[in-house]
Design a protein around this nucleic acid. Structure first.
Lengths: 112, 112
DNA sequence: GAGGTATGCCTCATTCATGGACCATTTTAG
DNA sequence: CTAAAATGGTCCATGAATGAGGCATACCTC
């Protein structure tokens, strides 16, 4: 015991989580699905789905995103179809940055 | 052994998590911040930040969003400023749906 | 080249989230 | 209105995520 351990989150992070939760709930209600329904489809407990909708910071990304997908929410303004494209875009971007970053030394391994 | 326990996630959920991780990493590198730096600022361990960037489903929403905010990522296509607005929008939406949903009974409390 | 830093990844102890049961309240259906 | 369902919330055991440390590699600076 004697462990405060409470994480301190920034306001934006909290709001983002809350927003995600609300979007999920709204999407779910619009589709006329019950929490229990979503929980079953996601393979999660009702309690967890409920906490996700409440925007609790402790829920796992996996659970939250799974629920979001189930209620038909589009994550990151990307439809499932374009999600893959976004992914490769980010991947390409990544393979470019590491080396160069900002130093334009163009250090090629031509020491042969 | 004898405990598979592995959660089964949908493809989209996994991709979304991976995308978030890549976006975070790209944003971080573009800003020239180190993982250790981000970890310290977020009050998290390097290992966790690393896992978040890898898009692991187990990380908590709080940690992931906190990191995202720190590297200056815009969550849900919303800038910090508009996040609040999005929030109230979703809240309003919610207070409208529950009762009516699709039944247009327009049950007003005019029973006075 | 050498030296320093950042990253990637592993293991393990501790802490915390999760599932499940239960109950109160609200909402829907009849 | 009453009955049934859905939601919101609590408590607890247990499994899982986290933090810490260490180590190998990749990278940048000089």
């Amino acid at each position: 015991m004697a462990k405060p351990a409470h994480r301190s989150y920034s306001r934006y992070a909290r709001q983002a989580a809350e927003l995600l939760g609300l979007m999920i709930r709204n999407a779910r209600i619009e589709r006329g699905i019950t929490v229990a329904d979503v929980a079953e489809r996601a393979g999660l407990s009702r309690g967890l789905v409920h906490r996700i909708e409440k925007g609790e910071m402790g829920s796992s990304v996996g659970a939250a995103f799974e629920v979001a997908v189930i209620v038909g929410l589009r994550l990151f303004e990307a439809e499932p179809t374009t999600l893959t494209r976004h992914l490769s875009m980010e991947r390409d971007k990544l393979s470019l940055l590491p080396q160069s970053a900002r130093t334009g030394t163009t250090k090629v391994k031509d020491d042969f």
